[in-house]
Design a binder for these strands. Sequence first.
DNA 1: ATTTTTTTATACCGATCGGTACATAATTCG
DNA 2: CGAATTATGTACCGATCGGTATAAAAAAAT
Lengths: 198, 198
Amino acid sequence: MGRPREFDVDDALETAMELFWRKGYEGTSLTDLTEGMGITKPSLYGVFGNKEGLFLKALERYERTKMNFFHEALKQPKARDVAERILRGFADSQTAETGPSGCLGINGALACSEAAAEIQKCLIENRQRGERDLGRRFERAAKEGDLPAGHEPYDLARYIMTISQGTAIQAASGADRPALYRVIDMALQFWPETVEQN
Amino acid sequence: MGRPREFDVDDALETAMELFWRKGYEGTSLTDLTEGMGITKPSLYGVFGNKEGLFLKALERYERTKMNFFHEALKQPKARDVAERILRGFADSQTAETGPSGCLGINGALACSEAAAEIQKCLIENRQRGERDLGRRFERAAKEGDLPAGHEPYDLARYIMTISQGTAIQAASGADRPALYRVIDMALQFWPETVEQN
DNA sequence: ATTTTTTTATACCGATCGGTACATAATTCG
DNA sequence: CGAATTATGTACCGATCGGTATAAAAAAAT
């Protein structure tokens, strides 16, 4: 009952996500948001709580719609394919034709005022969670004899995430997808395509 | 002549640099700056012009005092040593005990409002200049037969810069120096220590 | 038709933003 | 000693920040 909502919540959230992605949490003002989403401030607060709540919901949407490749990649049977899919998945997302360049999880609040400390902490934990999940996958690979010799699972995970975070900066600076793919090719060179059978 | 300045310009600039480094250009308020530097706003504006001018001077100081390893590294006779010194130089700077984590050139204004667009552009050009300088150095190395086979100089330069930018994010997320060193070791694995003599 | 419920639009809130006017203080020059 | 010059402290500027009070509008329920 009650007056029906005049805007689509999902569309509005998509717009908010793109704005935060492009301008960061603190760089995006409520005026940017309400104008972009085509709604008024009371509507925004009614549905999303406040700016922080809106950002967290936008981040959730980002993870669900743009980072879905990540946990899909973990399902690959070979660790090298896991790594490669993650690297290319990030590069694809960071250089999509439509939408902002780079990564919301980094652009959102890398360095910020105390007012955004909570968001910053949340994004750091977000990145660490991904790295930990990848490390766990590589731990399994180690047991399966599926890792290149002389490498610890969590070091490999940090390595892959470091490359992906690097390409996020590159993309935000204008690098295009083929350039990032060449970086990825180099980053994977040390990792033999086929590991010794045991 | 005139009343003598009551603060040390260099000390004040050092403090401003650290603040911008930790909180970014827009995340650092004039109140943060004046309180940190121990001066009043008129003094700040008298010496540094405005916030943008102060940031640019802080960036200049950063390049001069924290990034000096970079052009020193370019002087190494072997390309691989150039690459390694740059990677470790960045990692060292990003994880110094005193001072903020990460990199001012990235933390400063990765994603921001339109008000900081000029600073953002300046930092992007800054990063691209470094990459170009490294690419030129690798071009020389290519002529000298000093590059690993099958790699273009500017691709290698982008690769090295991508790793360094990745470690900047890692450092800003709490990674320590040994962890970054292990990443660097992996990133350089494909690059043979000694290249075929021709 | 009236009540109830929810969303909308307008107009406003105190706080903070970057930046400055103005008078005073501290120095050198004549 | 003035006079000129520069720096400082205070107090303020308009604009914007995130957030909200209030009431009208639009639907469902009675």
